Amino acid sequence: MEWIDTHAHIYDEQFKDNIADVLSQCQEAKVNRIYMPNIDRTSIDAMLELEHHYPEQCVPMMGLHPCSVKKDFERELYLVEEWLEKRPFVAVGEIGLDYYWDTAFKEQQQAAFRIQIDLAKKHQLPIVIHTRDSFEDAIQMVEELNDDGFTGIFHCFTGSAEEGKRITDAGFYLGLGGVSTFKNSGMNEVIPHLDISKIVLETDSPYLAPTPHRGKRNEPTYIPLIGEKVAEFRKSTLEEIAEQTTQNAQILFRS
């Protein structure tokens, strides 16, 4: 079996002391590729350094996270645009809307999201979307700006079956992570109704570790644990989930 982690911040400080061991364990677990979303200007160097040392395993995206959108977000977006012009990336991400912590920059977040969608279209790249307490605004914007070939992932999907269908009807994928394994998440009722051809797996490392590691540092090696739950909920085999989700990720990222 082969697995892909479509969303992991393994350039994070929490991994700096043992990243070589982590990536070696990923190979043993057959998690052969890890896609890294950017946060803002402070994460670019560490992310690209990891790609330099592990180019077959660690694949970067470029984008501005909504929680990093402040009054001066245009300066950050200029940098995103510069990087997209000077070298290839597999996606524009992690971008989106987050109203959970603060709504002071709600309008700026929406503007940054729209601008980055335009950049993705310009470079013919998928987008990786972060939403928290903001799903309706995000999906409306995606639906409004949707056209042929426009696609991406709604990362950390924990919504209803109806919301999942709305996402897949728009041509987007659903990123299932550690929350899917939580006992009271309700995802056991949702996952059976999702379009399997539009499901990808992610850890969001170092955050949101799956059961039984909840509360500890998350790692890409835990992808099979998420796959096990998806297989259980869908009454599928683990092999079927590994094959389908890996194929989905390869189609989306064209690699």
Rank of each mutant, 00 (worst) to 15 (best):
Met1Glu: 02
Glu2Ala: 10
Trp3His: 09
Ile4Gly: 07
Asp5Asn: 08
Thr6Ile: 03
His7Thr: 01
Ala8Asp: 12
Ala8Trp: 13
His9Pro: 11
Asp12Glu: 10
Gln14Asp: 15
Asp17Gly: 14
Ala20Tyr: 11
Val22Glu: 15
Leu23Asp: 03
Gln25Leu: 10
Gln25Ser: 14
Cys26His: 10
Cys26Trp: 11
Cys26Ser: 13
Gln27Ala: 11
Gln27Gly: 14
Gln27Asp: 13
Glu28Ala: 12
Glu28Ile: 07
Val31Thr: 01
Val31Ser: 01
Asn32Tyr: 06
Asn32Phe: 04
Tyr35Phe: 11
Tyr35Ala: 09
Met36Lys: 08
Pro37Val: 06
Ile39Asp: 07
Asp40Gly: 13
Ala46Tyr: 07
Met47Phe: 05
Glu49Asn: 09
His53Trp: 14
Pro60Lys: 05
Met61Pro: 12
Gly63Trp: 00
Leu64Lys: 00
Leu64Pro: 00
Pro66Met: 08
Pro66Gly: 06
Ser68Gly: 12
Lys70Asp: 04
Lys70Gln: 05
Asp72Thr: 05
Arg75Asp: 13
Tyr78Gln: 15
Tyr78Met: 14
Tyr78Lys: 15
Val80Trp: 05
Glu82Ser: 14
Pro88Thr: 09
Phe89Ser: 01
Phe89His: 08
Phe89Glu: 11
Ala91Gly: 08
Ile95Tyr: 07
Ile95Ser: 10
Gly96Phe: 00
Asp98Phe: 04
Trp101Pro: 00
Trp101Asp: 01
Phe105Leu: 03
Glu107His: 10
Gln108Met: 06
Ile117Arg: 05
Ile117Met: 06
Asp118His: 09
Asp118Glu: 14
Asp118Met: 14
Leu119His: 08
Leu119Tyr: 12
Leu119Met: 13
Lys121Thr: 03
Leu125Asp: 10
Pro126Gln: 00
Pro126Val: 05
Ile127Ser: 08
Thr131Lys: 03
Arg132Val: 01
Asp133Arg: 14
Asp133Val: 05
Glu136Ile: 02
Glu136Ser: 07
Ala138Pro: 01
Ile139Leu: 12
Gln140Trp: 14
Val142Gly: 01
Val142Phe: 04
Glu143Val: 05
Glu143Ala: 12
Asn146Gln: 13
Gly149Ile: 00
Gly149Thr: 06
Ile153Glu: 01
His155Thr: 09
Phe157Pro: 02
Thr158Trp: 12
Thr158Glu: 00
Ser160Asn: 07
Glu163His: 06
Gly164Gln: 05
Arg166Leu: 09
Gly171Leu: 03
Phe172Gln: 03
Leu174Ile: 02
Leu176Lys: 08
Lys183Ile: 09
Asn184Met: 01
Ser185Ile: 00
Glu189Lys: 14
Glu189Asp: 04
Ile191Pro: 10
Pro192Asn: 07
Leu194Arg: 10
Leu194Trp: 04
Leu194His: 06
Asp195Ser: 04
Lys198Leu: 07
Ile199Ser: 11
Thr203Asp: 09
Asp204Leu: 02
Pro206Trp: 00
Pro206Phe: 00
Ala209Gln: 07
Thr211Ala: 08
Pro212Phe: 09
His213Glu: 04
Arg214Phe: 05
Gly215Asn: 10
Gly215His: 02
Arg217Ser: 13
Thr221Phe: 11
Leu225Ala: 03
Ile226Gln: 01
Gly227Cys: 09
Glu228Gly: 08
Glu232Gly: 12
Phe233His: 04
Arg234Trp: 00
Arg234Met: 11
Lys235Met: 14
Thr237Cys: 03
Glu239Lys: 15
Glu243Ser: 15
Thr245Arg: 08
Asn248Tyr: 05
Ile251Gln: 15
Phe253Glu: 12
